[in-house]
Write a protein that binds this DNA or RNA. Structure first.
Length: 294
RNA sequence: GGCGUGGUAGCCAAACGGUCAGGCAGCGGUCUGCAAAAUCGCAUAAAUCGGUUCGACUCCGAUCCACGCCU
């Protein structure tokens, strides 16, 4: 048996996961695409040192910002972490806001070929607005159906091209059996706070992060090349802070933009959980314990 | 008190006497190897009251409000 706690950013997942873990002798597996990165502790709201002393956390701070991460890789890491925890006779508590990773882990993905080197090359070759025409032309020839479906989305076109080049088949052909059944023995919960409450929490947390030194953290990471990394550059807020550091924004503007970006992220998460995780039981507060009965 | 300028959605901001601004914020959706990403869609307006007109956000008048200048 294992437990999953999902929910939008700042909704209180970590707190709930921690509380649950100590109650049922569990360990936490973070399902968060950005908390894996070292050096982004404050901005990605990683658990504190004390919290990690108290309860083991897995998949937090395990990567250097320059390393590339993707769903498939993450899923493998999570698989291993979960197995270890179970082997130790403890309960894995999956907690996080990266819906796609949770979905992939809980339901599985279709078997599809992948070649990270090839994908990186394709990214390199087409990763610019002007080069999209070339990508479109190539896809029009190789996989017109996929092009029609994702013409506005370069990233998915590149993955489609990758699959086509490796397998000779259209990605659409290979992904016809999107898994709809859970493949895990899981008790899943999703935090759904009233919008005003979540907004309040987001604003408050943003303030705290800034007080904790988020700006300095960002400055260091950016100096280290964060903005050019393959995956970590997407972490919310750092590009905005970069603009502040370049004096393009005032402090109040910075705060406002960070809060807005976080709210928008939370909304996308809400949409995802609403539709992709019917197995999760809605929870309206992070204050009370999860309804788990042994 | 007088003169001037202006009042367009939550905010910013255009054009126009007769289907549409646009941007930001908001809301909804999509999502199978970069997902804290990417992408698609939706709604809300004309300060108030009258007049001119077949038709007014657009023209005219009054009123209110804001800003500026004058007294």
């Amino acid at each position: 048996m294992m437990i999953a706690i999902m929910g939008p950013t700042a909704s209180g997942k970590s707190r709930l996961a921690l509380e649950t873990a100590s109650r049922i002798n569990g360990e936490i597996v973070s399902f968060d695409s950005m908390q894996v990165y070292r050096g982004l502790e404050i901005g990605t709201a990683q658990p504190t040192y004390e919290e990690r002393e108290q309860i083991p956390h897995h998949l937090v701070g395990i990567y250097d910002i320059h390393q590339r991460l993707d769903v498939y890789t993450f899923t493998e890491l999570a698989e291993k972490a979960v197995r270890d925890i179970l082997d130790r006779g403890k309960t894995p508590i999956l907690a996080g806001g990266t819906g796609m990773y949770l979905r992939a882990f809980l339901y599985g993905m279709d078997d599809m070929p992948g070649d990270r080197k090839l994908r990186a090359e394709l990214d390199e070759a087409y990763d610019a607005p002007e080069k999209e025409t070339a990508l479109h032309a190539r896809m029009a020839e190789l996989d017109p159906a996929a092009l029609a479906k994702w013409k506005e989305c370069r990233r998915r076109l590149i993955r489609a091209l990758e699959v086509k080049l490796i397998s000779g088949k259209s990605i659409l052909e290979l992904q016809q059996n999107m898994p709809r059944q859970l493949k895990r023995d899981i008790r899943a919960f999703k935090l759904e706070l009233p919008p005003e409450e979540l907004n309040r929490k987001i604003a408050a947390r943003t303030e705290v992060m800034l007080q904790q030194g988020w700006i300095e953290e960002a400055r260091l990471a950016i100096t280290d090349g964060l903005l050019e990394t393959p995956t970590a550059h997407q972490a919310l807020g750092y590009k905005i802070i970069d603009r502040f550091l370049k004096n393009e924004l005032t402090l109040p503007e910075l705060k406002e933009k960070l809060i807005i970006a976080t709210r928008q992220y939370a909304r996308r998460q809400r949409t995802w959980f609403r539709h992709q995780h019917p197995e999760a039981l809605p929870i309206t507060s992070s204050e009370s314990p999860l309804p788990i009965f042994h």
